[in-house]
Amino acid sequence: MDKNEDMDQGISLSDLFGLVKANILLILLITIFTTALAGAYAFTMIETKYSSTSEMMVLIYAGTNEDATNPNYQINAGQFVETTVSLIKSDTIINELRASNIVDIPENMTNNQIKKATTVNSKVNSFIITISFTNKDKVLAQDMADAITETTVLYLGSQFNGNFIKTTNASNPIPQTTNKLLYTIVGGLIGLALSAIIILVNRFLRNTYRTKEELEKGIEIQVLGVIPEYEIKESGKK
């Protein structure tokens, strides 16, 4: 296969435009279908969830090694806050929460689901930790944010040499707005990509003679003529 033949076998920008033009119906159908599918999913299937946030503060008591009741753990404030953040989403706190009965946790809600629904954040050089809980039930979201914060303050306060203070009660639940339009647009883009893949795969898998040279070489018969494709409109008929 010589270089010229290689070039003939390739696909040029003009070919690409030709392919798009020839398959515009397919592209439109697939794009409309995936857009509609994504839109239907976004607007009907995705449930609105609510999030409520509570805050707590962590203060470290700098005790001394001489006082056995107040040992100094050689821990800095940043590390302590980070450790607290990790502990909040641990089974220890969640089990304490279940045992405390201060909130009615649905029976089918597992520890892992609680961990996934819980978001704990802290800022650098700040002793404030924000605890958010997200659920489709706005009351439960608020109750859980409150309960997790309270349980953490009580449990860690009794276990560690620090001062844990609940600074803010759980906020009114805020709906977590999913960008449904974005979902729909992404659906459309996926449709475009999918149709492009289908067209290109079809183009490269189509095992037909495309050029005169290819035909001549394939069947080993001289080509006497190449007749271009032409179309006749109904109005063009006699």
Binding site: T208, G218, I219, I221, V223, L224, E229
Partner: peptide, 27 residues
């Protein structure tokens, strides 16, 4: 291609005098 090659092959097997081909409907 396989169908076209097969057709040409059948013609050749039957000693048909193929004097040329024509490529139609070319885009």
């Amino acid at each position: 291609k396989t169908i076209i090659n097969e057709a040409v092959s059948i013609l050749r097997q039957n000693k048909v005098n193929i004097i040329g081909s024509v490529f139609t409907q070319v885009n």
